[in-house]
Design a protein around this nucleic acid. Structure first.
Length: 472
RNA sequence: GGCGCGGUAGCCAAGUGGUAAGGCACGGGUCUGCAAAACCUGUAUUCACCGGUUCGAAUCCGGUCCGCGCCUCCA
């Protein structure tokens, strides 16, 4: 199986996706902050990470996938206080919602999903290590900061030196709680407890407080994947400062390279603009479902663009996705019908006519190219089937290969929303029409169809029955 | 201002030197009482604009215009 290539943000070049231990590809994904529903932009990142894992696994490697839950930060604390809930009850609720969405989108569960609150101790130990090495210092209020000047490589990921970010002298920033840093570039490893944090504080050698955001990912990734591992990923916005700071903390503490590869997905746009609350274009999976689209259609939309290009989400794109998925499903049905259920496909991991599809995915996750190749292969197969040029055995093999391809894409066909139940009046009309049709009274059947149309319902006939769907 | 991404058919979107994938929508056809679905099939002499290099450029170089993102805790 060809080795997949992926663009690495650190080296700014395509790199082979290999396991440094020769066996298991170990990678970490920055997970959600659970303070509200995840939006479809978040899911672009999680879906493409899921696809990465599926491609790596298809290439023959095992994976160890760690994705954290950020449950202690300004937002979770503030919002839980506002709602008068304990931090735990609050974050557990949103974490559950997140998991439900993930399942609907057919995301593989990470092998480990650590929560920051459950890992305070290892974070404290990591901070102590940095203090001992002189890379961190305790401020007057008991907060601990990372000393950016102590880490020579600071900025290597985000090209800081080329971005003209000046290290402003301490005290020039507005935030009143950060005035005691030595330098404005220094960032918090530990935040001393403040009144507004309520009961959300943990003990440490420097007093009560809570870990800084960047720290949890360093501590937890190294805890479960080792001090050096294969890949770390997140949205582009995390490149700086989050990932830059993670590298600084981790490598300063261990003296070893942290993650070998860095994988960043570009943001999703909505109608050409960044999603934001003020623009009212922050959509969730629930919004998608409310408009009658399946989660699978969203999954399709999210991989219909290459992950390094901005992807413009529109409601019309969901329509296109729905139709496209229907055709893929149709091919599955055609192959199932043509295959011999009694003969199992020859054991093989060949992609058969879908080889170009895998090759496109292995080429830096070029999903649009892969989908193009998928439909090209589908056309050819359909043509062969119609020309009866496919034996039952060959169809079974094709079906098996097709199933493998669908698995890599993560497409399933059983999550289409069930058609809405029709009112009794509509059901009665439809039943009457079906009877008229059976009696070959087509004039009456057509009249009844027109009535149904006026009521906003369309009826589709099959051999032995009909299906009602809301017309829109 | 700095850094980065991009402008390809009505919409979405591949293609990074060899003569424009694919999806949706739309037109034609097969099938079906009709309709739908399904399948087949057609649809960009052209890739924001202007120069240049080349036998040859959407693809390389220079310039111009436009859109978007990041620039200290937003995937």
């Amino acid at each position: 199986m060809a080795e997949p290539l992926l663009y690495d943000s650190l080296s700014r070049s395509l790199q082979p996706l290999t396991a440094s231990d020769g066996e298991t590809f170990r990678f970490y994904c920055c997970g959600p902050t659970v303070y509200g529903p995840a939006h479809i932009g978040n899911f672009r990142t999680f879906v493409i990470q899921d696809l990465l894992r599926r491609v790596v696994e298809a290439s023959g490697l095992k994976t160890k996938h760690v994705r954290n839950i950020t449950d202690v930060d300004d937002k979770t604390i503030r919002q839980s206080q506002t709602e008068g809930k304990s931090l735990q009850a609050f974050t557990e609720y949103w974490a559950e919602r997140f998991h439900a969405d993930c399942e609907a989108l057919n995301l593989l569960e990470p092998h480990v999903e650590p929560s920051a609150v459950d890992h305070i101790e290892i974070q404290v130990r990591l901070i102590q290590r940095l203090i001992d090495k002189g890379n961190a210092y305790v401020a007057e209020d008991g907060s601990v900061y990372f000393r950016v000047t102590s880490f020579a490589d600071y900025g290597k990921l985000s090209r800081l030196h080329e971005r003209e970010i000046t290290t402003a002298p301490a005290g020039t920033l507005q935030s009143d709680d950060e005035y005691d840093r030595e330098s404005a570039a220094d960032f918090a490893l530990w935040k001393a407890h403040k009144e507004e944090d309520g009961p959300n504080a943990w003990p440490s050698p420097w007093g009560k407080g809570r870990p800084g955001w960047h720290l949890e990912c360093s501590a937890m990734s190294m805890e479960y994947l080792g001090e050096s591992f294969d890949l770390h990923s997140g949205g582009v916005d995390l490149l700086f400062p989050h990932h830059e700071n993670e590298i600084a903390q981790s490598e300063a503490a261990t003296g070893k390279p942290f993650s070998r590869l860095w994988f960043h997905s570009t943001h999703l746009l909505v109608e050409g603009h960044k999603m934001s609350k003020s623009l009212g274009n922050l959509f969730t999976l629930q919004d998608v479902k409310d408009r009658g689209f399946s989660p699978m259609a969203l999954r399709y939309v999210l991989i219909a663009g290459q992950y390094r290009q901005p992807l413009n989400f529109t409601w019309d794109s969901l329509n296109a996705a729905r139709s496209a998925l229907r055709r893929l499903q149709q091919l599955h049905q055609s192959l199932s019908a043509a295959a011999d259920d009694t003969s199992s496909p020859s054991p093989s991991s060949d992609w058969g006519p879908f080889q170009p599809v895998y090759d496109a995915l292995a080429n830096n996750l070029n999903t649009p190219d892969a989908l193009g190749k998928l439909f090209t292969a589908a056309h050819q197969i359909e043509r062969d089937l119609q020309a009866s040029q496919v034996t039952r055995e060959a169809a079974a093999d094709l079906l098996a290969a097709y199933d493998r391809v669908l698995t890599v894409f993560g497409f399933t066909f059983d999550t289409e929303a069930a058609p809405a139940a029709a009112p009794a009046e509509v059901e009665a009309l439809a039943a009457a029409r079906w009877q008229a049709k059976q009696a070959r009274d087509f004039a009456r059947a057509d009249a009844l169809r027109n009535q149904l149309t006026e009521l906003g319902w369309s009826v589709r006939d099959a051999k032995d029955g009909y299906e009602l769907t809301p017309a829109n």
